[in-house]
Amino acid sequence: MNKTKDLFMAGLWEDNPVFRQMLGLCITLAITNKVANGVTMGVAVFFVLTASSFVVSLIGDTVPRRVRIPVFMLVIATFVTLVYIFLQAFFMPLSQALGAYVGLIITNCIILGRLESFSSENSPWDSLVDAAGVATGFAFALIAMSVVRELLGFGTLFGIQVMGPSWTPWVSMILAPGGFLVLGLLIWVQRAISPVEEE
């Protein structure tokens, strides 16, 4: 049980994909200007990552090493397509807000990285826990960033006014510079809480 917890917590905090591994930054910077977008992307990646991790851990031994990347991509693409169609069917406005970035989950290096380095060599249960940890860590990073950016940039959370009507929006927070600034500051906070051991 302890091992399960450690695996999960590593993905969530110590090896957080965004704050520690610096992966998936393109999506992180692009869609975190609203909390709703961050939550949607977090859930979508959670589903894709856990599902494809599970599948890859089952077939990992039988896939020849030479063709493993195309096979992994096919598995990921299948689940991403499911998410994409699901969003279009039931959450059209969110799907439009995220635009191409849902489709681009296929190329997200967090997912391919977990499949390549963990799922293909570990048991289905461990892969599932690892994927859940990393995906939760990613969602955590997205939500943390989008809360700061939406709060300062629009004065709202989930579109609901929270900062009062006289709030002056910080336009830079909605734009790219705000994304970089908030990302840098949050990485700083995360590293201040648990410092990196320099090699």
Binding site: T168, W170, V171, S172, M173, L175, P177
Partner: peptide
Amino acid sequence: VFLTISFPVA
């Protein structure tokens, strides 16, 4: 510059 890009109106 931070103020310029954050609060263009003011």
